[in-house]
């Protein structure tokens, strides 16, 4: 799975893109965030406030209970501030 980080989440995690192998049982957006938070202190810090974390699976907004699969592109970012 390809995981993309944007804006201040990217700066906390320390990378814009990472390739991860999903462990058994990590099959929803919520479980993915829980698991990613264990990867490093930076990840944990980035994901500590879930209310300000938005997730897109394959470039579409996703809900916490949405399923995720090995080949997905998952982007994690704060609320958008364009316009």
């Amino acid at each position: 799975m390809k995981v993309l980080w944007f804006a201040w989440l990217r700066t906390r995690v320390g990378t814009a893109t990472e390739e991860v192998a999903l462990p058994e049982g990590v099959d929803t957006v919520a479980k993915l965030l829980d698991w990613l938070a264990t990867r490093s202190p930076g990840h944990a810090q980035a994901l500590s406030q879930r209310a300000v974390v938005r997730v897109a699976v394959n470039q579409s907004y996703a809900t916490a209970d949405q399923p995720v699969h090995a080949g997905d592109e998952v982007a994690i970012f704060p609320p958008v501030t364009g316009g």
């Binding site: 944007f6 804006a7 907004y61 982007a75 970012f77 609320p79 958008v80 501030t81 364009g82 316009g83």
Partner: peptide
Amino acid sequence: LIDWLKTRAPFWKLEDTAQGQKWVEAR
């Protein structure tokens, strides 16, 4: 168009401030 894109299109502003660069928070 502008109201809808402001809350949906994935853009993020990094502003220069007197205290250095700062990510703009969603309003």
